[in-house]
Amino acid sequence: MRVLQALAVLMLCLSFSTVQAAEKEINVGFIYVSPIGDAGWSYAHDLARRELDGMEGVKTSYVEAVAEGPDSERVMLNMARKGYDVIFATSFGYMDPMLKVAKQFPNAKFMHCSGFKTADNMGNYFGRMYQARYLSGMVAGGMTRSKTIGYVAAFPIPEVIRGINAFTLGVQAVNPEATVRVVWTKTWYDPATEKEAAKSLLDVGADVIAQHQDSPGPQEAAQEKGVYSIGYNTDMSTFAPKSHLTAPIWNWAPFYRNVIEQVRNGSWKAESVWPGIETGIVDLAPFSAMVPKELQDRVMAARADIVAGSNRIFVGPIKDQKGAVRIAAGVVAPDQDLLGMTWFVQGVVGTTE
């Protein structure tokens, strides 16, 4: 009898523990390099964070405008010490600080966006934005008349260089004579600097302005000059409705929901994730009415080819600025080469410094 009573008590305790585990709230922290605002990189991540807040048993918080380096380490440490279950750091320069903090808090899950380092409890993630960059390049190539396209770029790291190259290949797919001029700002978010960089490109004849920046400053510069623009991160058309043609955009919600579900059911593991346009995580913003229907159809056909896997974009022969073959005829560049890309394709005017 006592044995049966003991078993009953044990089963009750186990059942209670299971319910507690199932009901445990998952605390999730986000760290952003720029202000959230209402457009751009951090805004795109925050839209997804807000969706996580709608999930049962999930509580999120964020810290915005966190400088890369020591300041980001301080913010991560603060979240980890407070018992956050999952921490997302959403800028390249957060990689080493996150790796350091992750080693100190082995029970927490850490996810770094755009980097390449991992640990037992730290994974990394990004999206194949170069696919959407290629498509937006097709739009720019089809709309330029001066055959000079300006590109306001943040930092000369593989992520940005890869995007410029894919964009240029898209431009050349519809306009082989067009060139892409690059100006580096060495900023992720500095509206004034980014706008001035766009103006410098307009001064040398660019009639379409593209960007790898968080602010809509380049879009505004293009509209003030009366030329076209290609945004980034989110649909920036409200900032330059008379200029904005489309934009490569992020939709992080499906990815973040999936990570949280993996943490909840115990299947999460540290890995490198690089989803493409077929997942909807990267895509194009709606076309402006300024983009002719024929060009829209051509771009959407190319999008369908990318989804189907018949257009891998970085397929040789592809030459660099000096005319040397970097990707041989018929060869598809492997991911490791794309992730470490430090050279420009033919058609780019500028340096990788």
Rank of each mutant, 00 (worst) to 15 (best):
L99G: 12
G93H: 03
Q104H: 10
P176E: 07
N311K: 13
A304I: 01
W41I: 05
K322P: 12
N78Q: 14
E224T: 07
W188V: 06
D335V: 14
P275W: 11
A210F: 08
R181V: 13
L284T: 01
V349Y: 10
Q104G: 08
L12Y: 04
T352E: 08
S272H: 13
Y84V: 12
A324G: 09
W188G: 07
D214S: 09
E194L: 05
K82R: 15
Y189F: 14
I313T: 06
V9F: 12
V325I: 15
G137D: 07
V345L: 07
T193G: 08
L7W: 06
K82P: 12
G69E: 00
G163I: 04
A102S: 15
E23P: 12
W184T: 08
G57I: 06
G54L: 13
V160R: 00
G266R: 01
I313H: 02
L284K: 02
A192T: 14
M290D: 14
G280E: 02
P70V: 04
I230M: 06
Q296K: 08
A173Y: 02
P191D: 00
V174P: 11
V171F: 09
N124I: 05
D297L: 10
V349I: 15
V174Q: 05
G137C: 04
I318F: 09
T187G: 08
T144G: 01
A80E: 05
M143K: 02
N233V: 11
S272C: 12
L245I: 00
D85K: 11
H45G: 00
F16T: 15
G350W: 06
V208K: 00
Q5T: 13
F30K: 04
